[in-house]
Design a protein around this nucleic acid. Structure first.
Lengths: 129, 129
DNA sequence: CTCTTGTTCTATTTACTGTAGAACAGTTGT
DNA sequence: ACAACTGTTCTACAGTAAATAGAACAAGAG
């Protein structure tokens, strides 16, 4: 599990971390039940603050992607790979909407959009090479 | 052109405004060359501050979606509807990536993803009913 | 000449981001 | 029993972004 953080990105580093963990879940590198490093250890490893790792963890906990068990550790949620609820689908759709609006303006045809998605999905799953 | 702002959303209101203007461009309600309200008038109309509208305008200007002509007004960029550059495609792909990672975890199959996209695109274009 | 335009400036408040250090209480391994 | 480690909680600080507010400026439009 390789984490790469871009400190000067517009994306907050706690979100970068959370997103890359979620990619690990998506590509099978982090199967349900897998332990994640302790907040302190991860922070030391990544050269960031414990509280920042904690923020990423709680962000993922809210998404039910991980389980935080006090005094024990942090683990990939046993039900991390599951069928999306209607609420989750709507949230994804809302996140997709402004991107699609721009894509329409930039004349990205449906086919090209699908190619882009397939390529990105393949790229995410390649993380588990 | 109806603008609806959710003040208590996690999305900054200047971004909500910019996104909805971009939807107007996408669905043809705001064709290239169309004038947009002045910063002051728009702010008064939407019940927000002039500087906030200005921020949305400059955000869209950076995306080359609108043209801000000092002392004259704000207009939809003459080339707002264009072919995406390679740089723009890469940016869209980067924005898409974390959403797709979550979609994989939530077992959204490629077909369902495509349906969701088609539905959202239709929804955007319905704004011009 | 007057109104409107976008721009620029200062100012203030609020929230978010990130770091920092300390203390607490329960778990784990020896 | 002991030491090390766990997530939690608390205070604190600095930096930035978001949003509002008011004022002034210079140039275009009628």
């Amino acid at each position: 599990m390789f984490i790469e953080i871009e400190p000067q990105s517009a994306v907050p580093i706690y979100l970068q971390l959370a997103n890359q963990i979620m990619e690990g879940v998506a590509n099978g590198q982090l199967p349900p039940g897998s332990p994640l490093p302790s907040g302190r250890a991860f922070a030391a490893d990544l050269g960031m603050n414990m509280h920042t790792v904690n923020k990423a963890y709680h962000y993922l906990e809210e998404k039910k992607m991980i389980e935080i068990i006090p005094k024990k550790g942090v683990f990939i949620h046993s039900n991390a790979l599951r069928k999306a609820t209607e609420e989750e689908k709507q949230r994804i759709e809302q996140e997709l909407r402004p991107i699609l609006a721009e894509a329409i303006c930039l004349q990205l045809e449906k086919e090209e959009m699908e190619k882009m998605i397939e390529r990105t999905i393949r790229n995410i799953q390649e993380g588990a090479k």
